[in-house]
Structure formats: C-alpha cells, structure tokens
Design a protein around this nucleic acid. Sequence first.
DNA 1: GCCGCTAACTTAACGCCGCTAACTTGACCG
DNA 2: CGGTCAAGTTAGCGGCGTTAAGTTAGCGGC
Lengths: 226, 226
Amino acid sequence: MSAPAVRRTRAKRGSGDLLREEIVAAAKRLLAEADRADDVSMRAVADAVGVTTPSIYLHFADKQELLGAVVADVFRELDVAMLAAAADESTPMARLRSYGLAYIRFALDHREHYRLAMLDPCPKPNVEVDEVLHSAAFSHMQATVEECVAAGIFQGDPLAITFEMWAAAHGVAGLVIAKPYLPFGDVEEFADRCLCVAALGHVVRPLLGADPAPEAIVGWLARQRA
Amino acid sequence: MSAPAVRRTRAKRGSGDLLREEIVAAAKRLLAEADRADDVSMRAVADAVGVTTPSIYLHFADKQELLGAVVADVFRELDVAMLAAAADESTPMARLRSYGLAYIRFALDHREHYRLAMLDPCPKPNVEVDEVLHSAAFSHMQATVEECVAAGIFQGDPLAITFEMWAAAHGVAGLVIAKPYLPFGDVEEFADRCLCVAALGHVVRPLLGADPAPEAIVGWLARQRA
DNA sequence: GCCGCTAACTTAACGCCGCTAACTTGACCG
DNA sequence: CGGTCAAGTTAGCGGCGTTAAGTTAGCGGC
C-alpha cells in the first residue's frame, strides 16, 4: 500500500494543471472512502496519484486549499441535483420543498464533504466552496423564495427568509449527520416535516403581524378554532 | 512557554483522580482560548498542568475522551442557562422560545465546545456529551413540547416535534458558527425569527391535515384571506 | 524501621503528519 | 546542441498522538 501505486509520467511543459486535476480527483476519491477528513493525508493523496508529496504544494498552498477544491468540485453537482429534483414542480412552494429535500439528501449522501463545507472551523472562509454553495443551493432557494414573495405567499425580505429556510435545511442535515443514531425515524420524512413546518411558519407569520409574541400565537390559534 | 510552567507535586496514594480534574480544567481553559480544537495538543495540556504528556493517558484513553470530558463539563452549564432564561416565563410557548434562544446563545458563546459536541465526526458516539445534552437541553425542550401538546397548541408525537424544534435551533447555531460573515443581521433577531417560524409551523400544521402538500398550504392561505 | 507492593508518574521513542529548502531532470526554444 | 526553467524529486524539520518500559514515592505489614 505504501509503494507508489503507479509512477505517473511527467507532464508536458505547458501543462502542469494536468496534475492538479489528478490530485483533486484522487483526494475526492480518498475522501469519499474515508469517513474522517484527517484520515486523508497529503502523503496518501500523493501516493494515489503516483507522485511525491511536495509536488502537491506546487498546485495547492496547503491542505485546506486542496480540500477546498475537492469540496467545491463535489458541490458543483449539487446544482444539478437540485434542479433535477425540482424540474417537474410547477409551483414555487413545491419547488421550494423539492430544493430543500434535495439539499438535505445531497448533504447526507456526501457527509464528509458537507462537513468540510458547512461544519468545519473557518480560519479563513473557504472562498471557492462558498462561491459554489452560493451559486448553486443558495441562488435557487433565493429565486424561489422571491417567487413566493411575489405570489403573496410569503411576506418580508426575501434574503432574510432564504437564510431562515437555509437554517432549517442545514439544521436537519447537520443534526442527522452529527447524531445519526438518534431515533428520527425515516430521515426523508423527518426532513420533509421540518421543511414543511418552516414553510408553513413563513406563510402564517404575516397573518399575525410582524413579530408575534408567544401569547399572540396562542391567541390566534384560539380564534382560528372558533 | 515550552518549559513546564510549574511542576505539580505528585498526588497522594489514594487519589489520582485529582489529576484528572486538573487535566480537564486545563484543557477547558486552553480550548476556550484557542479557536480550533486541534490547536489544543495533549502536550500543551500536560504542560499547562505541569505534568508529562503520557500521564494524561493514565486518566483518559485518548484525546477524544479527554475532549469529550471537557465538552460535557462545559455543557453542564447549559442546563442552568436554559432554566435561568425561562424562569420568568409562565406559558409553555414562551418557555419554548426562551429555551431555544438560550440554547442558541450558549452555542454561540461556546463555539468550539459546541462544534465538538454537535458538529464533529462521530467515530464512536460521545456518550458523556450526549448524556449531558439529553439531560439538559433536550429534556427541557421535550417537557415543554409535551406541555404544548397537552394544552392543544401542538398536535402529534412530542418526541418527533422536539427533534424538529431541535433541528431548527441547531440549524441557526450551526449556520452562524460556520458562516459568521454572512449578512444575517442581528443574530439574536435572526434566531428569534427562525424559532418563531418553526413554532408557528407546528401550531398551524394540524389545521391543514396530517401531511400538507405545498398546494394545500397555498389553498389554505387563500381561504384564510377570504 | 525497613520491605515489598503498587499507584503515580517519567523518559525515550515510534510512526505519522503538514510542510519547506534545495537539488535534479527533462521538454522545449533558439 | 546547449541553455532555460517548469515539473518534479530527495531529504529533513518540528510537531503530533500514542505506547513501552523504567522510576519514584507513599503505605500496609512484619
């Protein structure tokens, strides 16, 4: 296992970026196999590519940057997954639900990548990952929230509402990833309930005034029942 | 800094547990100062206590167990904080809100500890931490949710609802910890909105039937306005 | 009073890690 | 054909978690 699996042939003069892609690919594979990020060492990645460790540093400043590139690469698929999930939905609310479910499913299908992207210490914010997340998950969510606002289903600042929906989805993903042994029951249903509750909350809140106190909620409920 | 700060005197025959507490205390302090868990090394902890590194392994199997003990220790305060926050609230809904806000505030005030407890890889689930979390945060939440169900404010399985509320609170905490530079605005208000929306969602959901489809929600809203 | 036992440590070291400095090789250009 | 410089390599530093084996100090028993 420690012997260099296969010695690559040196890259042609012009293109050292070739190696860069090979490194990312190898790291991506190793990260998917391992279940902890620090089990993937620079030495292991180099070995998988068939190159010595310091060569990696010709293409990435440090390990964080390499992992950032890997995670960004994985999360580019999220865009596709979310669009595909919502392709058949015709109403904004249905799309919002599909987006949320797809987001959570993606997170659970790529736990280590999600952890690196969304659950890790952030000495310096990982620009590449954040860009991908923004352009994929976030922008779809935001656009759909804006549709909901335009349709009068939601009221308020779309950006704030998007963050709130994101927090709801992230909460489900994070909780299930961190504590998978808790009795959530079927995870997909759990996720659906959480998202549904969040969406419902946003729908109802305007009916109660801007910032409803707990008592106001109970009072409203009583009037509803009457 | 590398010289042993102060050499402790050897513990008496009966009580080696004395050192255990000193180690936890030192690790707790170092962890609060550092802002990444792996910046706290076993060597640094040993040095702070005034002992050599292997001595730690007389009391803890490995680093994870030590950090687990530290985190559990910190989270014992969460119980107090949550009770204090809700002390003046007289209705279940108000308590639920206070609990949630206190939980999020605690998480943000102890980011690294919260990360270790709730955002980290879980090769083996950290029993001690989970016990503390369960006996503090979770049991209060659950009891209050049960009150809400008893009062007819919520409907459904209290355990499931508690998990859903926990996911909401965890989502806010996790998102703000991971991406503090995003424009959430005032964090306390953001948290309050998220929790309010989740609670509202749970209040309203029974009015729409068991598992409302997106269109059902929109339809219900239209009827409400009429 | 000293003796052996063992709890409470220490010393020394292993193998891994991320990362760097300094050297070598080989493809291309004139 | 020889110089240049990108694309690697070899060697190694300091730090990490962890372990094996040795040492020291308190305490019960004779």
